[in-house]
């Protein structure tokens, strides 16, 4: 088993507007992309963010070898509960998943 962050080229997260978070997993090759698509399910992402699976959107982009997830932010951007205005640190939680 390895961690996603060790086999992917890059895992990044950003706001997609104040209400959404989007996570892009750049796999770099077809073989890693295939492995990541099998392993990183919407259910695992929902678990990471303590979200319901129904709100997690998943996009397999084979032309770019990118797996992308979008979901409502854990806290709306800039509210008292929000800890990361730009949402870039959430990527660490995904990069730490075992593949």
């Amino acid at each position: 088993m390895s961690r996603l962050g060790d086999i992917a080229v890059k895992v990044r997260s950003k706001n997609a507007g104040p209400f959404w978070l989007t996570v892009d997993i750049f796999c770099g090759s077809q073989s890693v992309f295939a492995q990541v698509c099998t392993s990183i399910t919407s259910a695992r992402i929902a678990d990471v963010f303590e979200a319901e699976i129904a709100v997690v959107d998943r996009y397999e982009m084979d032309s770019l070898n990118v797996l992308k997830f979008s979901l409502p932010r854990p806290a709306v951007q800039g509210t008292r509960q929000d800890r990361d205005m730009h949402g870039a640190s959430f990527a660490a939680l995904v990069a730490e998943l075992e593949v």
């Binding site: 950003k14 997609a16 750049f26 996009y59 032309s63 770019l64 990118v66």
Partner: peptide
């Protein structure tokens, strides 16, 4: 082609 097509992902919830 990679840098351009990948930009659709950026801060965009749906890449298409």
């Amino acid at each position: 082609p990679h840098t351009v097509s990948a930009h659709m992902l950026y801060e965009n919830s749906n890449p298409d």
